[in-house]
Structures are given as structure tokens and as C-alpha cells.
Design a protein around this nucleic acid. Sequence first.
DNA 1: AATTCATATGAATATATCATCAGATATCGA
DNA 2: TCGATATCTGATGATATATTCATATGAATT
Lengths: 127, 127
Amino acid sequence: MPARISPLDDCAIRVVDPARVESARAQLPAEEELAHLTQLFRLMGDVARARLLYALLEAGELCVCDLAAATGTPETNVSHALRLLRTAGIVKARRAGRMIHYSLDDAHVRMLLDLSREHLRHRRGGE
Amino acid sequence: MPARISPLDDCAIRVVDPARVESARAQLPAEEELAHLTQLFRLMGDVARARLLYALLEAGELCVCDLAAATGTPETNVSHALRLLRTAGIVKARRAGRMIHYSLDDAHVRMLLDLSREHLRHRRGGE
DNA sequence: AATTCATATGAATATATCATCAGATATCGA
DNA sequence: TCGATATCTGATGATATATTCATATGAATT
């Protein structure tokens, strides 16, 4: 039976296992870290952007028009997406004449993409 | 100089490095896989849900009210979040009387959470 | 310097997502 | 079976995010 943490009757937080709760709470990532982490995941959590990232993971470096071709996405769209990814430090740009070549800028992300995909490949047909 | 893939003048897809584009395109995750992957990332990409996941990663198993307490989130909110996570196979539920205990249901996710957090911890102070 | 090309930007709309509230279920204990 | 408790569900408004179109920038080519 959940116990009241505070003596107040209503608007009290009910807790079953105070020790475990406290330990979990204490070890949660700090706000700033959480923000960073979730931003990364959120940006990876869009199909169009994920296609871009996987294309870059494969190709190493691609210009905007090639990214558009490889992913079947309108160039404007690609550009918008790249700006978000660039701002977040996930992707980096290299200018070459009037083209701009993009590549993954974060070992972190490369690892996440790699692991996730590998995992997907291994679990064809069953969890 | 980008070459036209099709003979059409306008609305043609311009490509700089056809070989690389084709290789990248060929190795993109299939639609279904992409959908799965991005759903996972998208669900991890929300601060409230991420708190729940990290709490579970720490505690192993927690009931709704303890999750609410540990993360400082209203129980209703926690419940909604858990439904999404449960439906996606990220979290699993175990009923014990009138309480329901939740835990991570996916080694995949546990790994991603673990790695990300570890990575965060190691890069205090500079990318 | 004018034109073309690759990419970027801004604004507007469309759409998805989250928080909140009211109420519904389901389990337990009396 | 009644009330209390833990959790769930559905509907709504607020907010964020993606897509699209029109246009701007900036580099090369003539």
C-alpha cells in the first residue's frame, strides 16, 4: 500500500518503494544532459532525417543534391533537415565550390546509427 | 557538374556522384525498418519519456506511482507515456494486485540508453 | 556583370504531439 | 457489494514540428 510522503491528505505523492524511487531519481541524467540526449534522439526520430543520416553513414560524404537523390527527398526539404542536424552538431558541412558536402560529425551518432541498424538486421522475424 | 539522370529538362534529378548515390540508396534501411527505428528514436526523444526510461534502466522495475515520484511527472502523464512505450515494445508491464510494475522490455533499448548515457558522462566539457 | 547553378532561408500552412482534465476500469479490503 | 485505490482512457486545447512554395545568397562560368 503506497505511503504518503507528505502529511498532506490530498496532492500528496504516493510512493511504494521509497528507497528505489530515491535511487532512481538520484541517478537520472541532469536536465541539461537530458535535453541534449533527447534532442539527439528526436532528430534521429524522423524518417526523412534518418534516411539522410543512414545515407551519410554509408557514403561518408554527400552533397545536398546527392542526398536528395539518394533519399528521394526534395532538395529544399533536405536543406532544412540538414540545418537542424548541423545546428545540433550531428552533421558537418564542407564547402567545395558551389556545392556543400555533408558528413556525420559525431562519433556518438555514428555509433548509435550503426548499432541500431545492426540490431535491426539481426532481429529479422522475431524480438 | 551535376548530370541529369533523365533526359527531361526540368524536374530532373541532378546527381554529382551517381555511383556513391546508388550505393547509399541501395543500402538504406527498408521502409518498414526505418519506420521501426525512427519510432524508437522518436519515443526516446521526449524529455518526460526519457526520464521514465532512465528511471527504469536504473531501478529495473517500478510501478506507475513510483515512476511518477521518481521523475516528478503527474501520474496521468506517466500512464499516457507508458502506453506509447508499451505499444512500441519498449517497456513491459507486470500486474501485481492493483499495481502494475513496468520495466524495459528491449535489450536494444537498454543498450541505447546505456551507451548514450555513458557517452554523455564521458564527454563532460567538450565535443 | 550577367547568368546559371547549388544551396539556404523565410513565411505559411498542415499535421503531429504533449499536457491536462473528466471520467472509466479493475482490484482489493471491509 | 460498496468504497477506496491504482491505473487507464478519451477528448480537448496548446504547442511544436514538418512540408511547401517563393525567394535569397553565393559561387562559378560566360
